[in-house]
Write a protein that binds this DNA or RNA. Structure first.
Lengths: 159, 159
DNA sequence: ATTGAAAGTGAAAGTGATTGTCAGTATCAT
DNA sequence: ATGATACTGACAATCACTTTCACTTTCAAT
């Protein structure tokens, strides 16, 4: 989905919900759609703050919540601490592989694993509603660089 | 591993680390080993508090950290919020299935899934260090009860 | 049994991410 | 233009821990 389209979807969601399309919301949504990584509220705040110093972190949190409600953003809790937000693509469900060294996040999907999960749940007498699968390890670059030194650290995800 | 054995292991860990075996630590460890579910620091605190009102929540947190260091406890972060602690059995790695209705937690292991995870990681150029797999859904009892009513709620995990 | 250095303790304050409150401000159908 | 309604930012509050600090306990060496 193009950025313009997403922006429009967001505006539609606001109108349908009897909410208002404000300068701040437009700006925050635009900044969010302009990212292509997993981004934290704080990091997004720093970006919009660059364009308009008067926008508060609180409004960023509120707008991200609206984006979630609009089905345009997903919130993810990796490891400890802060949440990261990603675009909610209309694509299928996916899981994540996270580099413990540089923070890079790669998405993947695997039907076989999903099928096995269903099987496990059935055996346990459960009906799965949703799941969380995260693989943590070192990516190729960080493995090459594995001396543990301070070598070039490519942080791909905004943190 | 019997509770006595665990208690002894803990004491050994303390001595080896130049730490002291105090009344509080003994009591908290004993209470922890006496549980057989996933328990929060807060819940464990309430239990020891029943035996000795003067033990602080802070000491429970500190002792749980020591138990982790001793390799006798694992900390788990399910969903949002508080951490739950479980006995670190010498058994193999396991994952968790959690009932979103009553909070029941069931452990399971599945080699096939693990193998597929390794395969995915290899394809992405990653080396897995650890992973997190959590299935959320309704257990048999809560499904039967699925009218959504306030029916009998069997909370198995201490929260 | 006593002692004293090192470690431990509880209370209270601090954290860090996020959420709630509130008085003033912006939006938009009319 | 206007006014009802929603929105905003600053600040306080919350939640699950963690740190700090003045006092207390432990335990190896007497």
């Amino acid at each position: 989905m193009a950025m313009q389209k997403k922006q429009q979807n967001f505006r539609q969601h606001l109108v349908r919900s009897g909410l208002k399309a404000t300068r701040q919301r437009e700006l925050i949504a635009r900044a969010f759609f302009a990212t292509n990584t997993h981004i934290s509220a704080e990091a997004l705040y720093r970006r919009v703050s660059g364009r308009d110093r008067r926008i508060g972190l609180v409004t960023v949190y509120r707008t991200l919540k609206l984006l979630k409600e609009a089905g345009l953003a997903h919130e993810r809790q990796f490891g400890e601490g802060r949440a990261l937000f990603e675009h909610a693509s209309s694509e299928r469900h996916h899981d994540h592989m996270i580099c413990t060294h540089c923070g890079k996040i790669v998405e993947f999907e695997n039907c076989e694993i999903e099928a096995l999960q269903e099987e496990v749940a059935r055996k346990l007498g459960f009906t799965i509603q949703y799941h969380k699968l995260e693989l943590y390890g070192r990516c190729k670059e960080c493995r090459a660089d594995a001396s543990g030194g301070t070598g070039r650290i490519r942080v791909v995800g905004a943190r």
